[in-house]
Amino acid sequence: MNEFKNYHPAVNFLYFTAVIAFAMFLMHPACLVISFVCSFAYSVMLNGKKAVKFNLLFLMPMLAAAVLINMAFNHEGITVLAYLPGGNPLTLESVIYGAAASAMLVSVICWFSCYNKIMTSDKFIYLFGKIIPSLSLILSMVLRLVPRFKEQLHIIMQAQRCVGRDVQRGNILRRSKNAVAILSVMVTWALENSIETADSMKSRGYGLPGRSAFSVFTFEKRDRLAVTYIIVLCMYITSGRLAGGLYFRYFPSVQWHYMPVYTLSILAAYFMLCIMPAAIELWEVSRWKAIELRT
Protein backbone atom coordinates (compact mmCIF):
# COMPACT_ATOMS: atom_id res chain seq x y z
CA MET A 1 0.00 0.00 0.00
CA ASN A 2 2.73 2.43 -0.84
CA GLU A 3 2.77 2.62 -4.57
CA PHE A 4 3.42 6.32 -4.99
CA LYS A 5 6.56 5.86 -2.92
CA ASN A 6 7.98 3.61 -5.59
CA TYR A 7 7.87 6.33 -8.18
CA HIS A 8 11.03 8.21 -9.04
CA PRO A 9 12.07 10.75 -6.34
CA ALA A 10 11.81 13.57 -8.86
CA VAL A 11 8.13 12.76 -9.35
CA ASN A 12 7.52 12.65 -5.61
CA PHE A 13 9.36 15.89 -5.03
CA LEU A 14 7.67 17.68 -7.90
CA TYR A 15 4.28 16.53 -6.71
CA PHE A 16 4.73 17.67 -3.14
CA THR A 17 6.23 21.01 -4.08
CA ALA A 18 3.33 21.67 -6.41
CA VAL A 19 0.66 20.55 -4.00
CA ILE A 20 2.08 22.39 -1.00
CA ALA A 21 2.59 25.57 -3.01
CA PHE A 22 -0.97 25.43 -4.28
CA ALA A 23 -2.27 24.68 -0.79
CA MET A 24 -0.60 27.86 0.41
CA PHE A 25 -1.45 30.16 -2.47
CA LEU A 26 -4.94 29.13 -3.49
CA MET A 27 -7.19 30.72 -0.91
CA HIS A 28 -10.43 29.97 -2.69
CA PRO A 29 -12.57 28.07 -0.17
CA ALA A 30 -13.32 25.29 -2.63
CA CYS A 31 -9.58 24.80 -3.21
CA LEU A 32 -9.02 24.74 0.54
CA VAL A 33 -11.71 22.12 0.99
CA ILE A 34 -10.23 19.98 -1.80
CA SER A 35 -6.71 20.28 -0.41
CA PHE A 36 -7.90 19.65 3.14
CA VAL A 37 -9.93 16.55 2.27
CA CYS A 38 -7.27 15.05 0.01
CA SER A 39 -4.37 15.65 2.38
CA PHE A 40 -6.38 14.33 5.30
CA ALA A 41 -7.38 11.20 3.40
CA TYR A 42 -3.90 10.58 2.07
CA SER A 43 -2.24 11.03 5.46
CA VAL A 44 -4.69 8.55 6.93
CA MET A 45 -3.98 6.17 4.07
CA LEU A 46 -0.24 6.39 4.68
CA ASN A 47 -0.11 6.41 8.46
CA GLY A 48 -3.28 4.55 9.39
CA LYS A 49 -4.74 4.92 12.84
CA LYS A 50 -1.87 7.08 14.06
CA ALA A 51 -2.75 9.76 11.54
CA VAL A 52 -6.42 9.73 12.51
CA LYS A 53 -5.46 10.23 16.12
CA PHE A 54 -2.98 12.99 15.32
CA ASN A 55 -5.36 14.78 13.01
CA LEU A 56 -8.27 14.71 15.41
CA LEU A 57 -6.42 15.36 18.66
CA PHE A 58 -3.84 17.84 17.47
CA LEU A 59 -4.90 19.43 14.22
CA MET A 60 -8.55 20.05 15.03
CA PRO A 61 -7.80 22.01 18.22
CA MET A 62 -5.16 23.89 16.25
CA LEU A 63 -7.76 24.74 13.64
CA ALA A 64 -10.09 26.12 16.30
CA ALA A 65 -7.27 28.03 17.96
CA ALA A 66 -6.24 29.61 14.68
CA VAL A 67 -9.79 30.82 14.08
CA LEU A 68 -9.96 32.33 17.57
CA ILE A 69 -6.57 34.01 17.23
CA ASN A 70 -7.59 35.54 13.94
CA MET A 71 -10.80 36.80 15.47
CA ALA A 72 -8.88 38.41 18.30
CA PHE A 73 -6.26 40.16 16.19
CA ASN A 74 -7.85 40.86 12.84
CA HIS A 75 -10.62 43.42 12.80
CA GLU A 76 -10.95 44.22 9.15
CA GLY A 77 -14.24 43.75 7.31
CA ILE A 78 -17.46 45.62 6.75
CA THR A 79 -19.81 43.32 8.64
CA VAL A 80 -19.41 44.16 12.31
CA LEU A 81 -20.91 41.39 14.42
CA ALA A 82 -20.01 42.66 17.87
CA TYR A 83 -17.42 44.65 19.72
CA LEU A 84 -14.58 42.99 21.58
CA PRO A 85 -13.86 44.08 25.18
CA GLY A 86 -10.88 46.13 23.99
CA GLY A 87 -13.09 48.23 21.72
CA ASN A 88 -12.10 46.78 18.37
CA PRO A 89 -14.85 45.27 16.24
CA LEU A 90 -15.40 41.57 15.65
CA THR A 91 -16.21 41.16 11.99
CA LEU A 92 -17.75 38.35 10.00
CA GLU A 93 -14.97 38.60 7.43
CA SER A 94 -12.27 38.00 10.01
CA VAL A 95 -14.09 34.86 11.19
CA ILE A 96 -14.38 33.56 7.63
CA TYR A 97 -10.80 34.41 6.84
CA GLY A 98 -9.66 32.78 10.08
CA ALA A 99 -11.46 29.58 9.13
CA ALA A 100 -9.92 29.64 5.66
CA ALA A 101 -6.42 30.35 6.91
CA SER A 102 -6.56 27.64 9.54
CA ALA A 103 -7.86 25.13 6.98
CA MET A 104 -4.88 26.04 4.86
CA LEU A 105 -2.51 25.64 7.80
CA VAL A 106 -3.89 22.24 8.72
CA SER A 107 -3.85 20.94 5.17
CA VAL A 108 -0.24 22.06 4.69
CA ILE A 109 0.72 20.20 7.87
CA CYS A 110 -1.09 17.13 6.57
CA TRP A 111 0.72 17.40 3.25
CA PHE A 112 4.03 17.60 5.07
CA SER A 113 3.25 14.51 7.10
CA CYS A 114 2.65 12.71 3.79
CA TYR A 115 5.84 14.22 2.38
CA ASN A 116 7.85 12.85 5.29
CA LYS A 117 6.47 9.41 4.69
CA ILE A 118 7.13 9.43 0.95
CA MET A 119 10.30 11.50 0.52
CA THR A 120 12.72 9.57 2.66
CA SER A 121 16.11 11.12 3.27
CA ASP A 122 17.88 8.85 0.78
CA LYS A 123 15.55 10.11 -1.92
CA PHE A 124 16.25 13.69 -1.03
CA ILE A 125 19.98 13.07 -1.03
CA TYR A 126 19.66 11.25 -4.35
CA LEU A 127 18.02 14.30 -5.86
CA PHE A 128 20.09 17.07 -4.35
CA GLY A 129 23.25 15.40 -3.08
CA LYS A 130 25.20 16.38 -6.16
CA ILE A 131 23.94 19.91 -6.66
CA ILE A 132 23.92 21.13 -3.08
CA PRO A 133 25.68 18.47 -0.99
CA SER A 134 25.93 20.11 2.41
CA LEU A 135 22.57 21.83 2.26
CA SER A 136 20.76 18.68 1.26
CA LEU A 137 22.44 16.72 4.04
CA ILE A 138 21.46 19.35 6.58
CA LEU A 139 17.93 19.48 5.22
CA SER A 140 17.48 15.74 5.33
CA MET A 141 18.88 15.66 8.86
CA VAL A 142 16.67 18.49 10.03
CA LEU A 143 13.55 17.03 8.47
CA ARG A 144 14.22 13.74 10.19
CA LEU A 145 15.14 15.36 13.50
CA VAL A 146 11.82 15.26 15.31
CA PRO A 147 10.70 11.75 14.33
CA ARG A 148 14.14 10.34 15.12
CA PHE A 149 14.24 12.05 18.48
CA LYS A 150 10.82 10.69 19.27
CA GLU A 151 11.92 7.16 18.42
CA GLN A 152 15.10 7.46 20.45
CA LEU A 153 13.22 8.96 23.37
CA HIS A 154 10.90 6.00 23.35
CA ILE A 155 13.85 3.59 23.36
CA ILE A 156 15.56 5.40 26.23
CA MET A 157 12.37 5.50 28.26
CA GLN A 158 11.86 1.77 27.80
CA ALA A 159 15.41 1.09 28.89
CA GLN A 160 15.06 3.32 31.95
CA ARG A 161 11.83 1.58 32.87
CA CYS A 162 13.64 -1.76 32.78
CA VAL A 163 16.12 -0.56 35.39
CA GLY A 164 13.32 0.82 37.53
CA ARG A 165 13.65 4.49 36.70
CA ASP A 166 10.22 4.96 35.32
CA VAL A 167 8.85 8.47 34.89
CA GLN A 168 5.44 7.24 35.94
CA ARG A 169 6.44 5.81 39.30
CA GLY A 170 7.07 7.37 42.67
CA ASN A 171 6.44 10.86 44.01
CA ILE A 172 6.88 13.99 41.99
CA LEU A 173 10.50 14.56 43.05
CA ARG A 174 11.53 11.07 42.07
CA ARG A 175 9.68 11.31 38.80
CA SER A 176 11.22 14.61 37.83
CA LYS A 177 14.65 13.27 38.75
CA ASN A 178 14.16 10.34 36.41
CA ALA A 179 12.86 12.62 33.69
CA VAL A 180 15.96 14.81 33.96
CA ALA A 181 18.14 11.70 33.66
CA ILE A 182 16.30 10.73 30.49
CA LEU A 183 16.69 14.23 29.10
CA SER A 184 20.40 14.14 29.80
CA VAL A 185 20.78 10.83 28.01
CA MET A 186 18.77 12.23 25.13
CA VAL A 187 20.90 15.35 24.73
CA THR A 188 24.13 13.37 24.94
CA TRP A 189 22.88 10.98 22.32
CA ALA A 190 21.78 13.80 20.02
CA LEU A 191 25.12 15.59 20.19
CA GLU A 192 27.15 12.47 19.73
CA ASN A 193 24.92 11.29 16.94
CA SER A 194 25.28 14.49 14.96
CA ILE A 195 29.07 14.34 15.23
CA GLU A 196 29.03 10.70 14.19
CA THR A 197 26.87 11.49 11.20
CA ALA A 198 29.17 14.27 10.11
CA ASP A 199 32.27 12.11 10.55
CA SER A 200 30.80 9.17 8.76
CA MET A 201 29.62 11.27 5.84
CA LYS A 202 33.05 12.84 5.58
CA SER A 203 34.88 9.52 5.72
CA ARG A 204 32.72 8.24 2.91
CA GLY A 205 33.71 11.19 0.76
CA TYR A 206 30.27 12.72 0.71
CA GLY A 207 29.97 15.53 -1.80
CA LEU A 208 33.05 14.56 -3.79
CA PRO A 209 32.53 14.19 -7.52
CA GLY A 210 31.93 10.80 -9.08
CA ARG A 211 30.03 9.29 -6.19
CA SER A 212 26.84 7.36 -6.74
CA ALA A 213 23.85 7.46 -4.45
CA PHE A 214 22.82 4.83 -1.92
CA SER A 215 19.59 4.05 -3.69
CA VAL A 216 19.46 3.82 -7.45
CA PHE A 217 16.28 4.93 -9.08
CA THR A 218 15.40 4.62 -12.72
CA PHE A 219 13.15 7.00 -14.51
CA GLU A 220 10.53 4.76 -16.03
CA LYS A 221 7.72 5.30 -18.44
CA ARG A 222 5.18 5.68 -15.67
CA ASP A 223 7.35 8.39 -14.10
CA ARG A 224 7.35 10.29 -17.36
CA LEU A 225 3.59 9.92 -17.48
CA ALA A 226 3.19 11.15 -13.93
CA VAL A 227 5.45 14.15 -14.52
CA THR A 228 3.48 15.14 -17.61
CA TYR A 229 0.24 14.75 -15.70
CA ILE A 230 1.47 16.92 -12.82
CA ILE A 231 2.94 19.62 -15.04
CA VAL A 232 -0.11 19.88 -17.30
CA LEU A 233 -2.46 20.19 -14.34
CA CYS A 234 -0.17 22.69 -12.61
CA MET A 235 -0.04 24.85 -15.71
CA TYR A 236 -3.79 24.77 -16.07
CA ILE A 237 -4.37 25.67 -12.44
CA THR A 238 -1.78 28.44 -12.49
CA SER A 239 -3.15 29.96 -15.67
CA GLY A 240 -6.65 29.73 -14.25
CA ARG A 241 -5.55 31.47 -11.11
CA LEU A 242 -3.83 34.22 -13.11
CA ALA A 243 -6.86 34.62 -15.36
CA GLY A 244 -9.00 35.25 -12.30
CA GLY A 245 -11.04 32.06 -12.44
CA LEU A 246 -10.35 31.48 -8.77
CA TYR A 247 -10.90 35.06 -7.65
CA PHE A 248 -12.07 35.14 -4.08
CA ARG A 249 -11.44 37.96 -1.68
CA TYR A 250 -12.04 38.05 2.03
CA PHE A 251 -11.47 41.73 2.83
CA PRO A 252 -13.09 44.18 3.15
CA SER A 253 -16.14 42.16 2.15
CA VAL A 254 -16.37 38.60 0.92
CA GLN A 255 -16.63 38.59 -2.85
CA TRP A 256 -15.91 36.13 -5.60
CA HIS A 257 -16.16 35.72 -9.33
CA TYR A 258 -17.82 32.62 -10.56
CA MET A 259 -17.28 31.77 -14.19
CA PRO A 260 -19.62 28.81 -14.57
CA VAL A 261 -17.63 26.18 -16.44
CA TYR A 262 -14.18 27.69 -16.15
CA THR A 263 -14.02 27.84 -12.36
CA LEU A 264 -15.39 24.34 -12.10
CA SER A 265 -12.83 23.02 -14.57
CA ILE A 266 -9.96 24.57 -12.58
CA LEU A 267 -11.32 23.10 -9.38
CA ALA A 268 -11.64 19.71 -11.11
CA ALA A 269 -8.03 19.96 -12.25
CA TYR A 270 -6.96 20.83 -8.72
CA PHE A 271 -8.90 17.89 -7.35
CA MET A 272 -7.30 15.57 -9.91
CA LEU A 273 -3.90 16.81 -8.82
CA CYS A 274 -4.57 16.46 -5.10
CA ILE A 275 -6.15 13.02 -5.33
CA MET A 276 -3.42 11.60 -7.59
CA PRO A 277 -1.33 9.61 -5.04
CA ALA A 278 -4.38 8.28 -3.26
CA ALA A 279 -5.85 7.23 -6.60
CA ILE A 280 -2.60 5.51 -7.54
CA GLU A 281 -2.68 3.55 -4.29
CA LEU A 282 -6.28 2.51 -4.72
CA TRP A 283 -5.79 1.56 -8.33
CA GLU A 284 -2.75 -0.52 -7.41
CA VAL A 285 -4.70 -2.30 -4.69
CA SER A 286 -7.53 -3.14 -7.02
CA ARG A 287 -5.08 -4.40 -9.64
CA TRP A 288 -3.36 -6.55 -7.04
CA LYS A 289 -6.67 -7.97 -5.97
CA ALA A 290 -7.56 -8.77 -9.58
CA ILE A 291 -4.29 -10.62 -10.03
CA GLU A 292 -4.84 -12.49 -6.80
CA LEU A 293 -8.32 -13.51 -7.87
CA ARG A 294 -7.05 -14.76 -11.21
CA THR A 295 -4.59 -17.20 -9.65
Partner: peptide, 9 residues
Protein backbone atom coordinates in the same frame (compact mmCIF):
# COMPACT_ATOMS: atom_id res chain seq x y z
CA UNK B 1 -22.69 55.58 13.82
CA UNK B 2 -21.78 52.01 12.91
CA UNK B 3 -18.56 52.99 11.16
CA UNK B 4 -15.77 50.44 11.27
CA UNK B 5 -12.70 51.45 13.27
CA UNK B 6 -9.59 49.50 14.06
CA UNK B 7 -6.93 50.75 16.42
CA UNK B 8 -3.97 49.44 18.27
CA UNK B 9 -3.91 50.21 21.94
Amino acid sequence: NKIHLEFEN
